[in-house]
Write a protein that binds this DNA or RNA. Structure first.
Length: 976
DNA sequence: ACCGCCGGGTGCC
DNA sequence: ACCGCCGGGTGCC
């Protein structure tokens, strides 16, 4: 059964237009550049087109008696070309919602239809109005959808063959039966007359799509005994809901049972056998509410046939601390060293911890003149040292790690399964299972958890922390070159943990992999929103997994559009929407056209499968989480006279260059240069050393004299752009840059992505952003951030800056008040972090550092020592804004110093949320340093103005306006 | 298919 | 009758 591919589906035009999900303020610069280029250049072919209805005709389905597929009155059918049909190459097959063939389109009509469909002039959709009992033929109403410019071609093609396209038939069968075609067409097409929702209504409806999903989800459930962490009330609710979802026997949304048949009220499709219940759903709780813990509780509580994992005392196979440095293949598997008092990340916030409201953040602006005294929060932080300390002897579940690097990176946090245990498991394969292996009636017992690499260690930690020591739960980390790919072995685990990358790498072109051969009890997609492009290999790999139950964990289930949702629905195998056509016809298009029915159907769909609580959600009148207060101070920094003079010099230079671009109207074409100038000014506000080797900007890269000079300049550019922290993304894969390279035309991509573009376009390859010729030999690689050389080179000549002074006086005062308080010092410039190391060392601060250039191993280590409250452990973490992304848990800190304003305030919030999250027991104080009368102040003003626009729902702008506002912004920044 | 079409049987009324 | 008519066989693409 082959299905016509829906090339990209329909554009979500209204929503794109009003920029519903991605507010202007969260846009990265590369997005802006990409868009401005796209606006002028030809539209990308793969983007879904705005399809309109050309009209409809009546056709007939013939050959019914040869096929088993049946349809209902008013049922939607899909039309699939069969070019290989031996009797007629124009054959068009008619299939029902489940893809069973019903018949063929009559030959005469199939001929023009084949032409239209093959040349992609229109998509054709069918509804059978009546005659479903007919034995030989039945009528079908065909509607044609396509791009406006193809309308005449379609009409003509049909006309040649004697078919006249008319207006759409009124929905359902009644009217069609009543009158002949001419009468039909005189009637106003009702579905087109329906008053569409306004973009504002649509926006607000969408914003609310994931709201208020709590009703009937308030029942609580205790976790299985195997979970040693007490669940918070909202987590118990989530557990009850998840268990119920997994054990439900309900029909999926929009299905009803009718005379022994199952009937889909949206497509009018009926089947004898019940459509599979959706066992699982979307847990869309806000970050920090404990999705990981809840999921672990689910795994243990709904372990087998709705029963929890039985408690079974382990024989004394548990290694004693300190003795278990088991060696395997020459590398040490580390044993939990049992420091004992590290705080478990997510479970420490007991309900009694804080009863204060957490949503009343205050912003206080303090002038630099009186920073000395009043910048300090008046309130003394109350330290509630009532943390629940895990027992020193506690041992977590068995975790088997094959990747030695990773094991080392995780340090003491992991207990390795000893080798003899593993052998025992291997031996038992196929005969009798070891006690830890459940024998499910369906043979499925293992849960597969797929997550981004960055949160793997979090999962391992949490299994360790939340699973009782005497519970034998096998957790296998399927990662690294040495991973065990045996299907039998994987099937026998209780939990297999892997990353999206490993999954799709295994899946690759082969379309199968060890993970795809296993029949999983449960598949969990952590941060599931990252799987969104249905064309990506990763998505296909995820969709093709076999599982009884499926879960998506995501704090932000809607990233950009409705299409992201399809991916989630499809993963959950919610019939019939796992097939794109039905999603498009039944949900996506109606919603796009502003049809209230479509929207309410979508709401129903989401409601049935989603649980979402935000930090502000209430459970029985009480907030789900009660986070400590969070206060934001803006501390203005005044430059010294010398600094001011130097700054003005740099600024004047830049202003001249940008001013020229503005008058020439070439700001956007020279965006890379503009960025460089802005970055330099921003760097200067922090510390003059950040500027590094001075480079001249302004000259077009094309007219450079020697290739080596050009290369050097490109390296400078890419370094500046990447260290600027604007979180550039690759315009090809839309992900964060991997192995960044810069083209001769000064645009930045992932190396693999742009190489693939060049390979496929051969000699004709053009830069996706500016259409300049590009060649592989001309790509210049990013040399990496060279923090070391920067700090050593400037060591003897080190001098302070006003901003550094401001930070240091804060830190010194803080240490005096409470030497145990920990702080995050955040900058977008890793070089600035290096500069800061000097005075910190001088003043005898113990600090650690986390930036993007560090390996997983170093990161894990840095986090661990910082979170450690023992004496002598670092009290300061130098954190690069980019590295402070999701998943990190830095609750040991209660002070945050944001050293420089970010383009994207959301990135700042996210960074602050690293410590202002579940587990934080102190009030969090955030200090933003802004240099007075500088580009920084202008940035803040622009941010504010944008925020106001968004709040007034004026966020929507057309492409031209946006381009213009980009330019206006740059002018405002440079005070031009 | 309670149709249309095909082709064999048949042939005044 | 080199036709018309009748009635059985048959039937998607």
């Amino acid at each position: 059964m082959e299905f016509r591919r829906f090339g990209g589906g329909l554009q979500f035009s209204i929503i794109d237009h009003i920029d519903l999900f991605a507010g202007d303020q969260t846009e990265t610069l590369s997005q802006a550049i990409r868009r401005s280029v796209e606006d002028s250049a030809a539209t990308a072919e793969d983007e879904p087109e705005a399809n309109v209805l050309f009209g409809a005709i009546k056709g007939s389905v013939v050959g019914l008696r040869y096929y088993t597929g049946v349809v209902n009155k008013g049922e939607m059918v899909s039309l699939v070309r069969q070019p290989q049909n031996p009797y007629d190459k124009n054959a068009v097959m008619v299939a029902n919602v489940y893809g069973s063939q019903v018949g063929h389109i009559k030959r005469q009509l199939a001929e023009p239809m084949a032409k239209i469909m093959d040349s992609n002039l229109a998509k054709v959709e069918g509804v059978v109005p009546f005659g479903v009992k007919n034995a030989f033929t039945m009528p079908v109403n065909l509607s044609f959808w396509g791009k406006e410019e193809n309308k005449t071609a379609v009409i003509n093609e049909l006309k040649i063959h004697g078919f006249q396209l008319g207006p759409e038939f009124k929905g359902g069968s009644r009217s069609v039966e009543a009158g002949g075609p001419p009468d039909q067409w005189l009637a106003p097409p009702k579905s087109l007359m329906a008053i569409p929702l306004t973009p504002e209504q649509l926006k607000s409806a969408f914003d609310k799509l994931f709201d208020d999903l709590m009703e009937d989800k308030t029942r609580e459930m205790e976790a299985a005994e195997a979970v040693c962490t007490p669940l918070l009330p909202h987590q118990k609710q989530a557990l009850a809901w998840m268990v119920a979802r997994e054990n439900n026997n309900d029909l999926p949304p929009f299905w009803v049972e009718k005379n022994g048949l199952c009937f889909n009220v949206l497509t009018n499709f009926a089947v004898l056998e019940r459509p599979e219940s959706v066992l699982g759903g979307i847990l869309a709780d806000d970050m920090g509410l404990g999705k990981t813990l809840t999921t672990i509780a689910l795994i243990l509580t709904n372990f087998h046939n709705g029963k929890p994992l039985p408690l079974k005392k382990m024989e004394s196979t548990q290694p004693v601390p300190g003795t278990a440095a088991t060696k395997r293949k020459g590398s040490a598997l580390k044993e939990n060293s049992g420091t004992g008092d590290e705080l478990p990340s997510e479970e420490v916030a007991t309900p009694s911890c804080s009863k204060r409201r957490q949503d009343d953040s205050v912003t206080i602006v303090i002038d630099s003149e009186d920073e000395g005294e009043s910048a300090a929060p008046k309130k003394k932080a109350k330290t509630k040292a009532k943390s629940k300390v895990p027992s020193k002897t506690k041992k977590g579940p068995i975790i088997l790690i094959e990747d030695m690097d990773f094991a080392a990176a995780l340090g003491g946090g992991v207990v390795a399964e000893s080798s003899h245990k593993k052998k025992a498991q291997k031996k038992s394969q196929g005969v009798s299972k070891t006690s830890s292996i459940p024998v499910d009636s369906k043979g499925a017992g293992a849960t597969l958890v797929i997550c981004p690499l960055s949160v793997i260690s979090n999962w391992l930690d949490q299994f360790e922390q939340h699973v009782r020591a005497d519970v034998e739960l096998s957790v296998y980390l399927y990662y690294g070159a040495e991973r065990n790919r045996e299907v039998k072995f994987l099937t026998q685990q209780n939990v297999v943990l892997t990353t999206y990358n490993v999954l799709s790498a295994d899946y690759g072109g082969k379309k199968c992999s060890p993970l795809h051969e296993v029949k999983w009890l449960r598949v969990v997609l952590d941060e599931g929103h990252i799987v969104r492009n249905p064309n990506a290999l990763q998505s296909k790999a995820v969709l093709n997994l076999t599982a009884e139950r499926r879960w998506i964990l995501s704090g932000t289930p809607i990233q950009n559009s409705l299409k992201d949702l399809w991916m989630l629905i499809s993963f959950l195998k919610m019939k019939p929407f796992d097939v794109k056509e039905w999603w498009t016809r039944v949900i996506e298009r109606p919603v796009t056209l502003g049809d209230g029915k479509g929207l309410s159907d979508l709401q129903t769909l989401i409601k049935g499968i989603t649980l979402r609580r935000t930090k502000t959600s209430k459970v029985a009148g009480r907030a789900v989480v009660q986070l400590p207060e969070r206060t934001v101070f803006v501390q203005k920094v005044t430059m010294s006279e010398q600094e001011r003079r130097d700054y003005e010099t740099v600024k004047k230079e830049g202003r001249d260059v940008i001013g020229r671009y503005v008058t020439e109207g070439t700001v956007l074409t020279n965006y890379a240069d503009v960025l460089v100038i802005l970055v330099r000014l921003r760097q200067f506000c922090c510390h003059p050393h950040l500027l590094g080797s001075l480079l001249s900007v302004g000259g077009s890269t094309a007219d450079m004299s020697t290739p080596s000079e050009l290369r050097e300049r490109l390296i400078n550019k890419i370094t500046l752009v990447l260290s600027s922290g604007s979180d550039e993304e690759c315009a090809v894969c839309l992900e964060s840059l991997r192995q960044p390279v810069i083209t001769y035309c000064a645009h930045v991509y992932c190396k693999p992505c742009i190489c693939e573009v060049i390979r496929s376009e051969q000699a004709n390859a053009k830069c996706p952003l500016c259409r300049a010729q590009i060649r592989t030999e001309e790509l210049v690689e990013y040399p990496g951030e060279d923090a070391e050389s920067a700090s050593t080179e400037s060591k003897d000549a080190w001098k302070s800056s006003s901003k550094v002074d401001a930070l240091m006086s804060n830190l010194l005062r803080l240490r005096q008040e409470d030497p145990n308080i920990k702080s995050l010092v955040v900058s977008q410039f890793t070089k600035f972090l290096s500069v800061l190391e000097v005075p910190l060392r001088e003043q005898g601060f113990s600090f650690t550092r986390l930036d993007g250039s560090m390996s997983q191993r170093c990161r894990a280590k840095a986090i661990k020592v910082f979170q450690d409250t023992a004496q002598g452990c670092p009290t300061i973490m130098l954190l690069s804004l980019k590295a402070g992304g999701v998943g990190l848990n830095l609750t040991a800190a209660s002070r945050v110093f944001l050293m420089d304003p970010a383009w994207n305030p959301a990135a700042e919030d996210q960074c602050v949320d690293r410590c202002h999250r579940l587990g934080q027991k102190k009030d969090v104080v955030i200090t933003k340093f802004i240099v007075k009368d500088s580009v920084e102040e202008n940035m803040v003003k622009i941010q504010k103005r944008k925020q106001e626009l968004v709040e007034k729902a004026f966020g929507g702008k057309n492409a031209q306006d946006r381009k213009q506002s980009r330019i206006e912004e740059i002018r405002a920044l440079m005070e031009l």
